[in-house]
């Protein structure tokens, strides 16, 4: 008998669903994916540069208890992408947080059921 590999003890089980599932669990995940791919296609960065940054974020942030794979995965994608666009100079410092504030205000000013649009600043 060989000893069990001690590294195996800490391994989490695979997600239960091995079958088909939607590619994206929510529309925001699809939008995020599309933005990243479109910027890459337009030549703003090499995919390997993005993969490195994203991979580092995944490695740094463990999946929370009860969080599904897709939410964890694209949550890390979002964090990595926000800092990536700032590092690459595609967004000025503070620009994203200002836009977030305006989107939140726009939502609160929009009657329920109507499309939320960002007013000109």
């Amino acid at each position: 008998m060989t000893q069990p590999d001690p590294r195996l003890c800490d391994l989490p089980p695979l997600p239960a669903n091995h079958g088909d599932e939607p590619v994206f669990a929510a529309p925001w995940q699809a939008q995020l994916f599309a933005m990243t791919t479109a910027l890459n296609e337009a030549g703003h960065f090499a995919w390997s540069e993005w993969a490195e940054q994203f991979g580092a974020e995944l490695a740094r942030t463990p999946q929370a208890t009860g969080q599904c794979v897709s939410d964890h995965y694209f949550g890390c994608w979002l964090v990595a992408f926000e800092s990536f666009v700032e590092q690459r100079g595609l967004a000025a410092a503070g620009q994203l947080s200002e836009l977030q504030r305006r989107w939140d205000a726009a939502a609160r000013a929009t009657p329920h059921g109507e499309p939320i649009v960002l007013p000109a600043d």
Partner: peptide
């Protein structure tokens, strides 16, 4: 009134930025 959850707000901020600047 409407609500956007924090993640939706962040994604919309990114999208409006990249579209307005003509990157995508």
């Amino acid at each position: 009134h409407s609500h956007l959850d924090p993640i939706a707000v962040r994604v919309r901020a990114l999208e409006s930025l990249l579209v307005d600047k003509g990157y995508v």
